[in-house]
Amino acid sequence: MTRKFCWIWTLLLLSVSTQALAQSRGITLQTERSEARTPFKGGYYRALIIGNSLYRDPAGEWPSLKTAVSDARAISKILQKNYGFSDVETLENATRRDVLKALDRLSKRALPEDNILVYYAGHGFLDDETRRGFWVPVDAEGNDSTTYLRNSTIRDELNLIAKRSRHTLLISDSCFSGTLLREGTRGARPVGNAEQYFKKVANKKSVQIMTAGGVEFVDDNYQSSGHSPFTYFLLNELKNNDRKMLTVSELSNSVTQMVANNVEQVPQSGVLQGAGDELGEFIFIKLDVTVDGVDPDKVRVDVNVKPGKPAQAQQTSSAPEVKVEVERQTETPIERPHLPMPTL
C-alpha cells in the first residue's frame, strides 16, 4: 500500500514538474507516464555510437562505406527520441585512438545501475590464420592489423564497463563481428506474468552482444535505404516496436529473422564471455511523449540520465525520473501591443 502511494506521489511530482516546464515555454505536455515505469532500480541510459564511413587508408584496402555514419546518426537519434537515452556520445569517422578514448570516457561515467549501449558501424576484419576479429578504424593502414582494434581489446573495454554497470549491450554492424560473442540463451518473455519476468531479468546483470553477422561479410546500403541491412531492420524494429519494454533477446530475434529473410547474412546474438553476465536483460523502454504544437522529432525524453548524479540517490526509489525537453525550443511569442502601422 505504502509503495503504491510512493508511486502515485512520484508521478504527481513528475506531472507537476513537466507541466511547469511546458507552461513556461507556452506549450502543453501530454505525457504517457505509464510508459516511464520500469520494473528495475533506476539507472541512466548511456550510449556510445560509432559510425565509420570515410576511410583514409592510403593503400586503398579499406574503401569508404556508404551508410555507416548515417546508420550511427539514425541509431543515436532513435535512442534519444524514443528510448530515453540522454548520455549519448556519437563518433563519426573515428580513429583507433578516438574509439579507445571514448570507451574509456564511457567506462568512467558508468554507474552501478546504468544501462550502457555501444554501437559500432564500420569495417571489420578477420585474420584467417589466427581467427581473431577486429574493428577497423578510419586510420587503419592497409593490411597492418596493429592499426586495427582487436576484438579482445574491445572485450576488455566492455568488461570494464560491464563491471561498473547493470546492463551492457554491444551492437556491432561490421563484417566478422560474430567473433566477438559467445552464444547464450535466455528465456523468452512469458505470455502470462510479464511483469514478474521483467523484474527478474532487469535486476540481473547482463552483458549482451548483437552482431550483424557471424564470421562473414555483411552488406552495405540495403536497397538504397541509406542503411546497412542489419541497421535498417534494427531501426525498423526500434521504430515500430509497440511494446513498452523490449528486451534485447526479443529485439535480436526479430532483427535476425528479418535480416535473414531478406539478405544473405544472419545476425547473431549472445553474451560477452567472462564479463559477469547473469542472464539478465538489457531492456529498451519506449517512451511516447507528445507535446502540443511541437513536431515529435523535436521532443526528447530522457530517463534517469543526469550525468554525475550519485548512484545511491537512485536506489532509494524504483521510479525512474523522466525529463522532457523540446529539442529546438520554440520561441515564446512576445505579446506586442497592436499599434498603428508605421508609415513614412
Partner: peptide, 22 residues
C-alpha cells in the same frame, strides 16, 4: 523607403510609440 519603429509600454493600457524613416 526605409524606416525604424519602436514602442515603449508605459503601463498596461498606455504605450508610447514612434517611427522615423526616409
Amino acid at each position: 523607403g526605409l524606416g525604424v519603429a519602436g514602442y515603449h509600454p508605459l503601463n498596461e493600457d498606455w504605450t508610447l510609440y514612434g517611427s522615423w524613416g526616409v
